[in-house]
Design a protein around this nucleic acid. Structure first.
Lengths: 258, 258
DNA sequence: CCTCCCTGTTTCGCCAAGTGAAATCGCGTT
DNA sequence: AACGCGATTTCACTTGGCGAAACAGGGAGG
């Protein structure tokens, strides 16, 4: 906080509020973001000038603009993790024939930062930049398992939304699952985020041994070939190791045997 | 300018400078952006706190972070043009069997805001959020043709980079081409941006009749089936009309006959 | 091994610029 | 035609953004 420029911080917060609540007016944004109308008006004016938001003149309502697309494109091309992972994600998509996701944690959300889509599998919920929960899905639970205690506590305390009947909504059960994940660095889920989806995931480490991301192979549960599980598990784990190595991980920090 | 908050404006400018020059240090960023080291340090600190940039501790160097991906995802889902165009882009991709692009103008650049990729065609240069020139390519020249005079003058004055031997680099020739495009609202290019690429493009209008975007069908020149040109031209033009209508255009502002 | 130098980080004090409150404007409603 | 609501605009008050300059620390060169 000592060096934070509050005007900038408020502007970014407003941008995020708008991303989460598209189509709001000045007054509504002021309410949502907890700022005065004057301030919101000036912040959004500044953001609009630079193409970060677009005003619909008819409704005097705002949405994000085109400039974020440019930033995202640059981010995808230059962030070390995404660059390093790219070839291995390609390999994994090819060898597994399934959708492949690269996820990181963003606060109490999972965030998809790269994906490869399988040709045959149906329409996909995933999209680069899309946020999801941390307590459901193959990859997300890995991110949660290795998140700082504050984050884990917050998620375990908060309401655990049931996306499907299979979503773990009992904090104790979830905590046990996370402990198991910390032992193996792997996780798999079936129908806990989407009724008809499976996901095999493994943790990615950086040079310090910290878990910084998760790769997963995912697809429709009703199209998961019988007996293919061991192979998918191994392919994902192999990809995770390769990506970790590319990030400077040296296996020094092996997980204890489960 | 009256309502611009300069701290915010500077922060956004810095973010863009970083998008264009990934991997710079504080001092280098200060130089590139024309700010003092102190200011850059505080701005980037604020941006980093919110996940807009990531610091590589080893090199003390910065790149964009993950947060822009989230913003871009929201933008793609909520910007009126992109939402309205989506189904027609899908149709066009299916019926044409080619790559489909939706472009808008961002200053003196073209910006890809949506795309559909053909399965068979080779690797694609395009990516959502990627910027290109205005004076080369099928869609970009449409955007330039209908841009405000200042923009046209700036581009015509500036150096016209030759991406291939077919790129128009003579201002007079380009001006004539733009005039022709203003008559028809259509354009096509062959090998002027990429030696082995073609592009058929049409202008998209909004409710006020302004040209706000261009759709294009593009692919490898050596795979363009002989005699398919008229059909592609019509498919693209049809898609442009549909999207324009979805944006509230009512054909009142028909272009004069060429 | 020591020194210099370059770059990131921190401090300090001034005052421009960001801020909230309140007034004004403009439009759609009653 | 008056009303009401939300978007702009004005205004006066500091806050907090800012540049300059000091400090720190690590790597290159001697």
């Amino acid at each position: 906080m000592p060096y934070t420029i509050s005007a900038v911080d408020r502007a970014l917060a407003l941008l995020e509020a708008l991303a989460e609540n598209p189509g709001l007016s000045v007054t509504e944004l002021a309410k949502v973001s907890g700022n005065t109308k004057s301030l919101v008006f000036r912040l959004i004016f500044t953001l609009e000038q630079r193409g970060y938001v677009i005003k619909d003149p008819a409704t005097r309502t705002y949405t994000l603009g085109y400039r974020p697309l440019f930033l995202a494109s640059s981010a995808q091309d230059n962030v070390a993790l995404i660059k390093a992972a790219a070839p291995f994600l390609d390999d994994l998509a090819r060898s597994s024939g399934q959708h492949v996701n690269l996820l990181v944690r963003d606060g109490v959300h999972s965030l998809c930062v790269a994906l490869r889509t399988a040709l045959d599998s149906g329409r996909l919920y995933a999209q680069v930049g899309r946020r999801g929960p941390l307590h459901a899905g193959g990859g997300p639970k890995i991110l949660l398992a290795f998140a700082p205690r504050e984050v884990r506590d917050e998620v375990l305390a908060g309401p655990l939304r049931a996306f499907t009947p299979n979503t773990i909504t009992d904090p104790a059960e979830l905590a046990a699952r996370l402990a198991a994940i910390r032992e193996t660095g792997r996780n798999e889920s079936r129908g806990d985020l989407d009724v008809n989806a499976f996901s095999f995931a493994s943790a990615i480490h950086d040079a310090e041994g910290e878990v910084i991301a998760a790769v997963s192979c995912a697809g429709r549960l009703d199209r998961l070939p019988a007996g293919s599980e061991p192979r998918l598990r191994d392919l994902v784990d192999e990809a995770a190791s390769r990506i970790s190595e590319a990030m400077g991980w040296r296996q020094r920090f092996n997980a204890a045997v489960g």
